[in-house]
Design a protein around this nucleic acid. Structure first.
Length: 563
RNA sequence: UGCCGGGUCGUCUAAGGGUAAGACCGCGGCCUUUGGAGCCGUUAAUGGUGGUUCGAAUCCUCCCCCGGCAGCCA
């Protein structure tokens, strides 16, 4: 792992842990968990939680479990379980033999519910969902006791057992905690603990028709696993009193819940519900569409696990609502890929160049360094010949004064090859540039006698007769606005989708790319980082995804010009 | 408007009664056979008020603003 070690921020959770350790709490044991619900794919926001939980375990010599909180069979699927396992692993974390499922605890949870009934702290309620809602009161008005609140322990027990036995249809009855309908915290107004759901669970199949609610299940799962610090996001803050209530009433081991602010990222959304919507409405190609902020999408886009980890560590942990800058994430991919990605030449928008004084039919194989940041990456050879492609944007007939590329009267270096000089341009009837003729200086071959002659610009290129065609998918941010969730009345986040988030082009790439493997990452010189698509690239067709462009100071100059 | 939680550079995060710091972004420069990378420099912040104190981002008062909560979701 290439973790960045300098100046990483501390956080309030570590301070709590330090204090607990000083006080000898839990015998100095630190045990966390990452508890996803398998109702969608993991995204970068989950990565923040994963890095936090596994990171704390590692730092304090503790343990971190991977636990599926699979208590709602209606929304959960095996596909999601598998993808989550793959993603956490890919991110570089190891739960060893501690892969758990809430569903494995269903029997224990049920027994504890009976215990709660026996102590008079829970009752079976026959109110409908709508009735429960209206009995609950409002934010400012207290609720009203359910008419079933004072059933006897025996009757509650009998009814609850019959609920489990499948005697009642969905929604007919629920088990509720008996707390206080007048409490200002709505979660404490006799919350539902179990509901009837005749649904097939991905793991327990049809063995249950009652399922525990989050508030009942989660603290008990933590307790069963002897979790010391149960880290969750801010929206569960109001649930902590209930988390604590359940554990205290049962008299079981009591983990400490601590809440932190979830991640928001500019120009994207991090809501499983909304991401699902994009998938279901075909606004993206799937959960792993390279534009998606999902771990699988980012992986397919070419992001590295190290880049994601470094980002998560840098943004820190606090309780303040935040929107992290996409530019920071991009900084970390570039940082990682700069060190590791082999350089290669690819012309995205080809313009034909003819070297008039280069012998027809001649081919030279020129040595090229694979990665100037990594000497161990070695060299390769690339063919040079009379007809080449360069980028259309690297030639201007009437150049801006700071344009250091090919233009009338100008010379440029072709990377790894020669210095060439503009001679003339050939246009079609419409006046479009067809090709540019140049001459080369044979003495300026890279490594040769006049090779160190200074020219202002260096261009990448490919040999026309040797280059390979490749499909290149130019991805841009999924949303056009920094905060897609802020929308005008009557529209939703989808109105902020960026119509230009994907542009597919046909590029010409150097011949050595013929034998790439799925997932290989490269820097296309002067263009950005690209990776071989893991789904659509194969022997017959090369497909590259743009991970991120290079920082581009020319683009900045162009922008300044517009102002 | 009941309860809970938050307000520090443009962004994210530190500083826990003693010089408001770091990262990203931006800007400027150096360097460069990638206008990449690297290196150097730099702009920029404590929501307001009153108080305690030699000294307040930090403690107290009042106010303002933002977020969450009325699923048989998690």
């Amino acid at each position: 792992m290439t973790e960045e070690s300098k100046n990483l921020p501390t956080n309030f959770i570590k301070e709590i842990i330090d204090r607990d350790l000083e006080q000898g709490k839990n015998d100095g044991r630190i045990h966390t968990r990452f508890p996803p619900e398998p109702n969608g794919y993991l995204h970068i926001g989950h990565a923040k939680s994963i890095v936090l939980n596994f990171g704390i375990a590692k730092e304090y010599n503790g343990l971190c479990n991977l636990r599926f909180d699979d208590t709602n069979p209606i929304k959960e699927e095996e596909e999601y379980i598998n993808s989550i396992i793959e993603d956490v692993q890919w991110l570089g974390f190891d739960w060893e033999d501690r892969l758990f499922f809430a569903s494995d605890y269903f029997e224990q949870l049920y027994k504890l519910a009976e215990q709660l009934i026996k102590s008079g702290d829970a009752f079976v309620c026959d109110l409908t969902a709508e009735q429960i809602r209206s009995y609950r009161g409002t934010l400012t008005k207290p609720g009203t006791d359910s008419p079933y609140r004072d059933r006897s322990v025996a009757e509650n027990l009998d009814l609850f057992r019959r609920m489990r036995g499948g005697e009642f249809p969905d929604g007919r009855r629920v088990l509720r905690a008996k707390i206080d309908m007048a409490l200002p915290n709505l979660n404490m107004r006799d919350p539902v603990l179990y509901r009837i759901l005749h649904a097939t669970h991905p793991r327990t199949k049809d063995s249950w028709c009652i399922y525990p609610m989050y508030d009942w299940a989660h603290g008990l799962e933590d307790s069963i696993e002897r979790i010391t610090h149960s880290l969750c996001t801010l929206e569960f803050e109001d649930h902590r009193p209930l988390y604590d209530w359940c554990l205290v009433k049962l008299g079981v081991y009591h983990p400490q819940q601590i809440e932190f602010a979830r991640l928001n990222l500019s120009y994207t959304i991090l809501s499983k519900r909304k991401l699902l919507e994009l998938v279901q409405e075909d606004m993206v190609s799937g959960w792993d569409d390279p534009r998606m902020p999902t771990i699988s999408g980012m992986r397919r886009r070419g992001y590295t696990a190290a880049a994601i980890r470094n980002f998560c560590e840098r943004i820190g942990i606090a309780k303040k609502d935040n929107i992290a800058d996409m530019a920071l994430l991009e900084y970390y991919v570039r940082e990682d890929l700069n060190k590791t990605a082999p350089r290669v030449m690819a012309v995205l928008n080809p313009l034909k160049i003819v070297i008039d004084n280069y012998p027809e039919g001649q081919v030279e194989n020129l040595p090229a360094v694979n990665n100037p940041e990594d000497p161990a990456a070695g060299n390769r050879e690339i063919p040079f010949s009379r007809e080449l492609y360069i980028e259309q944007e690297d030639f201007q007939e009437e150049p801006h004064k700071k344009f250091f590329r090919l233009a009338p009267g100008k010379e440029v270096r072709l990377k790894h090859a020669y210095i060439i000089k503009y001679e003339r341009v050939v246009k079609d009837e419409q006046g479009n540039i067809k090709e540019v003729h140049c001459t080369y200086d044979p003495d300026t071959k890279s490594g040769g006698v006049n090779a160190d002659r200074k020219v202002k610009g260096t261009l990448h290129w490919v040999s026309k007769m040797h280059s390979l065609e490749a499909e290149v998918r130019l991805y841009d941010r999924l949303f056009a606005t920094a905060n897609p969730n802020s929308v005008a009345e009557g529209t939703d986040f989808k109105s902020n989708l960026n119509p230009d988030s994907l542009k597919v082009i046909t590029a010409q790439v150097e011949p050595g790319l013929k034998h790439v493997r799925a997932g290989d990452r490269f820097q296309f010189l002067r263009r950005g980082y690209f990776c071989v698509d893991i789904k659509d690239s194969n022997g017959g067709k090369l497909v590259f995804n743009r991970t991120v462009s290079l920082r581009d100071s020319w683009a900045r100059i162009e922008r300044m010009k517009l102002r």
